[in-house]
């Protein structure tokens, strides 16, 4: 590639899976990946994780412990998996309280879950699922297209920020983290669910075999797109280790940073507070 054009002179190479690509390219290429798999996204998740991704997401939301009146932002959550769970958790809290004390009616009405995704195809999937769940008219669900590196929200406007299986695809992870820090209120919580690194010998080899040999083939058969799933497994390997990512979160300003490995490190939940 001729590196003569002025734009490319200032561009740093970034990783797209194992490939090095110019930064400008990455978001477009990631966009292509998700546009092409959006329709089969859910079934592929179920197959690849043997259904475990549902439990992982449940765990994420139970860590978040949502409350009535919460302002929550779910980034890269186009299919609404996290958002629906957050709403469900809040509703079940409200049901519990009906028999007991008076509920703060205003707080209930103020509950908002913003779903922000850079990819319109994924948002469409989510909107359709909301309608199927009878949440099509729900005022508390707000769908919007947006970039994790430049959120269209005011400073200190959110109680919670989650990003599930998304931060890996962001070109500048630091930027996304500092944006998360910016939009959270004091006391607000950052939670990130991401495919991470397995360190258990033996299990790691098994996992590598599964990722590199099985997943791309399954992708080809089910979603008709081998390349995208090849990218998926490569990008997981490129993502910083649990410790390193925790350090990055600390550097963004978060306090009480900790992480929890699930399934031996196949995924990890990182958590931090803005204080």
């Amino acid at each position: 590639m001729p590196i003569t054009s002025p734009a490319l002179l200032h561009s740093h190479a970034t990783s797209f899976g194992f490939k090095e690509v110019p930064e400008e390219e990455k978001s477009r290429m990631v966009g292509d990946v998700f546009s092409s798999v959006a329709s089969k996204y859910d079934i592929m998740n179920d197959i690849m994780s043997v259904g475990l991704h549902r439990l992982w997401k449940d765990r994420l939301v139970s860590k978040l412990s949502p409350f009535p009146g919460m302002q929550h932002l779910d980034v890269a959550g186009g299919t609404g998996d996290i958002a629906f769970r957050v709403l469900e958790a809040i509703h079940s809290l409200e049901r519990q309280r009906i028999s007991g004390v008076a509920v703060d009616e205003d707080a209930e009405d103020e509950t908002r879950v913003f779903i922000c995704d850079i990819n319109p195809a994924m948002l469409d999937v989510g909107r359709r699922r909301a309608i199927a769940k009878g949440l099509g008219e729900a005022r508390s669900l707000i769908w919007m297209e947006g970039d994790a590196e430049a959120l269209k929200f005011e400073d200190a406007s959110m109680d919670g920020y989650t990003i599930a299986f998304g931060i890996r695809n962001v070109t500048h992870i630091e930027k996304a983290l500092s944006e998360a820090y910016r939009v959270l209120r004091r006391g607000g919580r950052f939670l990130c669910l991401e495919l991470s690194h397995v360190d258990i010998p033996g299990f790691r080899d098994l996992y590598d075999f599964y990722s590199f040999s099985v997943i791309p083939s399954v992708g080809e058969i089910v979603a008709g797109d081998r390349e995208s799933y090849q990218y998926l497994v490569e990008s997981i390997r490129k993502f910083p280790s649990q410790e390193k990512f925790a350090t990055m979160i600390k550097e963004a300003g978060f306090e009480k940073v900790e992480y929890e490995n699930l399934a031996g490190g196949v995924v990890a939940i990182h958590s931090g507070f803005k204080l």
């Binding site: 412990s65 109680d159 006391g187 919580r189 009480k256 958590s271 507070f273």
Partner: peptide, 13 residues
């Protein structure tokens, strides 16, 4: 948490 003007998410801490 609301009373001391912190986000109630802090309860998760």
């Amino acid at each position: 948490a609301r009373e001391v003007d912190l986000s109630p998410s802090i309860v998760g801490a």
